[in-house]
Nucleic acid binder design. Structure first.
Lengths: 219, 219
DNA sequence: TAATTTTGTTAGCCTATTCTAACTTTTTAG
DNA sequence: CTAAAAAGTTAGAATAGGCTAACAAAATTA
């Protein structure tokens, strides 16, 4: 079992590895965690001894397969917790990160399975980031919100946040479903309303509230 | 801010102080926490320096007023968490203790206030134990479940666990309300059904399920 | 009361995680 | 292609929390 501290190093390495495919430097990891370089070096040796990190002096750091999986499981718990806190406890998005940062280290598989169940086994979180499954596998597509797209972007609806009946009904009423491709015609600066076209709908207006809940894949 | 370890010592002292009004011995605390005596001694010195414990060599240990309050606040978080896990997440009573033991140390007042709110500001937990309020004050009456009483006991209904509409309606239908006094006429060994008498009801039969949800004060 | 047992304390050591200071390797600039 | 800068490592120390061995005080028993 990894300690909380070890879990934090794994998590940081996981995130930093996304942008640094060829490995993460001690410097960068040190900055990210706000922990001095010598401390990082010694922790890397420790994690290497546990086969979680490939460590060689003066070489970039890489998670092993095992390390990647364990990091993903921590991230899974973090994201499930954030979603749970927002959806089921009605805490604000500003508040939940710090709480999730603590709860992610709770040792109790049943606790997190139950959260997963109560949330309806979500595959992506409300930021559009994928939630790793119980085996640490995740679909590597970080979706964008429709609200973050630009005029003339052509996008495909990939997922929906907060699958309430009302919202799904709303989408049905406009023939919007998963996989649908649409092009952004214009964006109203004042209220962030977006006008899109797709299929037989040549000009459908979607509110910012709606666009924030539609995750899309850009082309 | 106290560490998790310190919080565990405070909590243990609080519980042990209930039976040992005149103070707790190092031996007893050591056994309770499964931590060796020398370690306990040194932690007591540390807590004394923080004005949480009154410590004098070879004398029984006592929480200070401040220590008592901080211990009560940890217990509050523990009990709220247990209730939340059972009532809102539908986890089993066997499972929740270990999880609550971890969650009680989360640093986030909003998280626990929200739990409190979602639970309807409970004053006692389903075991009949009081939940300290936000200031660490608690009503010092540990109620008994009606199901744990004996034949001929005369008791007063003090509280009700899990205030669902159905249950309250059931109680109304039998003129059972808070403050009501009843006497136990007999207990059926086979299914733990209890026959009670009160007011104009000379012989009312209550199932074990019901008796487990009624907290009473004994005379 | 004196001897013995029990309880409590001190001293010294261990592991985990962090730090600073000093040194080494790599990288980058001339 | 060297010399300075940047990045990384080693060595040594600190703090939190825990342990064992040895000693001291208190309580018990004979």
């Amino acid at each position: 079992m990894n300690s909380q501290v070890e879990e934090n190093y794994l998590k940081a390495l996981f995130y930093l590895s996304i942008d640094n495919e060829d490995g993460v430097s001690v410097k960068v990891l040190s900055k990210h965690l706000d922990i001095k370089m010598p401390t990082v070096t010694s922790m890397m040796k420790k994690l290497a001894a546990k086969h979680l990190v490939n460590y060689e002096s003066y070489k970039p750091l890489k998670l092993t397969e095992k390390g990647t999986k364990e990091a993903a499981l921590v991230i899974r718990k973090h994201r499930l917790t954030e979603m749970y806190l927002v959806e089921k406890m009605h805490l604000g998005w500003e508040q939940v990160h710090d709480i999730a940062e603590q709860i992610e280290h709770i040792k109790s598989p049943e606790f997190f399975s139950k959260m997963d169940e109560l949330l309806g086994y979500p595959k992506i979180d409300p930021h559009g980031s994928p939630i790793p499954d119980k085996n640490g596998k995740m679909v590597w597509k970080a979706y964008n919100k429709l609200s973050e797209c630009k005029v003339n972007d052509t996008v495909k609806i990939a997922a929906v946040i907060n699958t309430s009946d009302e919202f799904l009904t709303f989408l049905n009423g406009r023939d919007i479903s998963l996989g649908l491709e649409m092009t952004i015609q214009s964006i109203e600066q004042f209220d962030n309303t977006i006008v899109v076209s797709y299929n037989k709908h040549s000009s459908e207006t979607l509110s910012h509230r709606v666009c924030e809940r539609l995750l899309v894949e850009k082309y």
